[in-house]
Structure formats: C-alpha cells, structure tokens
C-alpha cells in the first residue's frame, strides 16, 4: 500500500495527477467509473444491518459518545436562521456542557459564516459552510464559485458543496468532475485571510489556507448504490477532502448502508492511491444509538485511523442533545430528560 497522505496535501495533488488518464475525457472517465465493482444492494444492506447489531456498552459506550460529540458538524441550515440563532448554536458547540468535548464544526449558510466565525473565536471549532447553491445546486458555475469564494473569504474552514445530480444522472461525469475541481480551487483562501481555527490547529487544517472541501452527493437522489460508489470515486479523483451523503433536505438522507459503501470506497481509494479521504453522513442521525452504529461501521471498515473528527463527521442538529443525555445517564446512572440539556 502506498504511504498515506491526506487529500488536501500537495502530495495528494501529485498522486491524483498521476491518474490524469482516467479523467482525460468523458469516455475515459465513464469507462473507469463503470469498471468499478458493482454493489449488491441486498448484501450491502445486510452487512450494514449486521454491524448495527453490535452491542456497545459501558466503557466502550462512554468512549463512543465523546468521540461522536467531537465529530459533529453542528448544523443549522434554515431560511429562518438569524445571527442570534447561529451564535447560540456556536456557544453550544464550543461548550456542550458537563465536560463534554467541543463539536468539530458549526455548519451554516455562507451569509452566516462571519457571525459564526466570530462566535467560535479561537475555540478550535471549525466553521463549515454549505455552498454552490445548496441544496439543489441548480445555478450556473460562476454563481457556485462566487458562493464558495464568499464563504471562504468570510472565514469558512470547510466548504460543503453539492454535486450537480442532474449532470451525474445524465452521465455527464466529466462535467461533474470539472465542477468539483473548480470548487476546490475556489476553496483557496486569498493570502492573509487564514481563519483563527486553522491558526489554532485544533483539527487538521488546510495548508496554504485553503478550506477543506466536502462533496455532497445527495445519495437519496442518486438512488442506486452503484451510483454512490461511482460518485465517491469521481469526487475523490477530483480532490474531495471529504465525501458526504446528503443535504438533509430531501426525503432520504444518510443511511447506514450508503455510508458503509462510502467508507468502503474511501478504503479502496486509500489502498490504491494512498490518499486519505474523510466521510460525513448527514441528515436523519438523531440518536446516540444511531451514531454508535456509524462509529462501529467506521471502526470495522476503515479502522481506528479514521476514528477522529479529521476523517469522520456527523452532519446533525439534534444528535448532540441525545448524546449529552446518554452521557449524563452513563455518569449518573439515571435516565436524563430534555430539560437537562439546552435547547438552542
């Protein structure tokens, strides 16, 4: 296996460049993506379900809860978002309470980045911003790039972009590839605007000030697992730092099998090229029990090396409180209640 480099390094760029023939033309890219092993849906579902039966108790559960909290991209993506709402969320993310670790990031719309940036200050919590006309992605490329640059300029450490599902489903893979590459370039930060979070280096940070790029597939719209595997490779080839399941805005969001499949794609990409990519399931993960199932999948598919916020995130809003309540239960032996965690 090649030595490991993270997807955001310059070395990763070199390795990806060595695969240029794969992305040299629409035809070449299609042949490559369609040459990936197929996915048997029944088998994948069954494997995810079996991993879901793992029984994580006592010390393992305590470990998993704190790990899960530290991996949360605490999210608010509402039309009704206000600076006050965002500041409250940031405060919760920075100090969830009772000695729980801080979350990984606060995830907001681009126009809330500056507010969030200020609110998290030097806590080490990252600011993630959705971009590229989230969630539908239905605008012209220049608009998407402007959206991205705005968010980066406002201090976003991480950009969560959506792919053009229409282009993907109609087979225009190279178009999707080029768009991801363009957005990745737009993630570069103009010199002198590096964020505080990066300066703290609390989580892995982008060298040269570039924001990390998470690529959202909206797996609920891609429908088939074969499509998800192709999209995973497509995004990783284009330089994604993370691959992410969903926007949280459609009927079907993150599911264990889809996430397992993406973990497998990341594993294979790493085994082949040596470039390490992160995974972020988002949408619909609300309970501690669910979160632990995901951690079990990471543990048994990619191993310990991926069990950190650098390589795995939960895109979630209500999950944090459930984790905090379970945490209280573990420490006190009593079941907690919603009045004992904050509503933000």
């Amino acid at each position: 296996m090649p030595t490991t480099v993270p997807a955001y390094g310059s070395e990763a760029a070199e390795r990806l460049a060595s695969l240029a023939d794969v992305t040299a033309s629409d035809g070449a890219l299609r042949r490559f993506l369609h040459g990936l092993p197929g996915v048997d849906a029944v088998g994948l579902d069954a494997r995810a379900a079996t991993l879901g039966t793992r029984s994580i108790k006592t010390s393992a559960k305590a470990y998993a809860i704190d790990l899960a909290i530290s991996m949360i991209d605490l999210t608010t993506l509402e039309g009704a978002d206000t600076p006050g709402k965002v500041r409250a969320l940031c405060a919760k993310g920075v100090r969830p309470g009772d000695g729980a670790p801080r979350v990984a990031a606060i995830c907001v719309y681009p126009d809330m980045v500056a507010t969030a940036r200020q609110a998290v200050a030097d806590s080490g919590v990252q600011i993630a911003s959705v971009a590229t006309a989230f969630p539908a992605g239905r605008t012209a490329l220049p608009v998407k790039l402007a959206d991205t640059r705005d968010a980066v300029a406002a201090g976003a450490d991480e950009i969560d972009m959506v792919i053009d599902r229409g282009a993907f489903l109609s087979g225009r893979y190279l178009e999707v590839f080029e768009e991801i590459k363009a957005v990745k370039e737009a993630c570069a930060r103009p010199t002198g605007t590096a964020s505080d979070g990066e300066a703290k280096g609390a989580t892995r940070s982008a060298p040269g000030g570039a924001a990390h790029l998470k690529v959202i597939f909206e797996t609920g719209e891609l429908q088939t697992y074969d499509n998800v595997r192709r999209a995973s490779w497509l995004a990783m080839l284009a330089g994604a730092d993370f691959i992410k399941t969903s926007t949280g805005k459609v009927a079907v969001n993150a599911t264990p099998p889809v996430t397992l499949l993406m973990l497998e794609a990341v594993r294979d990409f790493h085994a082949t090229i040596g470039v390490r990519v992160g995974v972020k399931p988002a949408g619909g993960i609300r309970t501690t029990k669910d979160a632990i199932k995901y951690l079990v999948m990471v543990n048994e598919t990619l191993g310990e090396g991926w069990l950190s916020a650098d390589w795995f995130r939960f895109g979630a809003s209500s999950l944090l409180n459930d984790l905090l309540m379970q945490r209280q239960k573990l420490s006190t032996g009593r079941y907690s209640g919603p009045d004992y965690v904050t509503v933000d």
């Binding site: 793992r54 108790k57 010390s59 393992a60 470990y63 998993a64 951690l295 543990n299 310990e304 069990l307």
Partner: peptide, 9 residues
C-alpha cells in the same frame, strides 16, 4: 485510545 468493545454478555 482505541474503540474497544466492552464485554456485552
């Protein structure tokens, strides 16, 4: 610390 599953008998 690794994610070691505690006994779950």
């Amino acid at each position: 610390m690794a994610f070691d599953y505690a006994p779950a008998p």
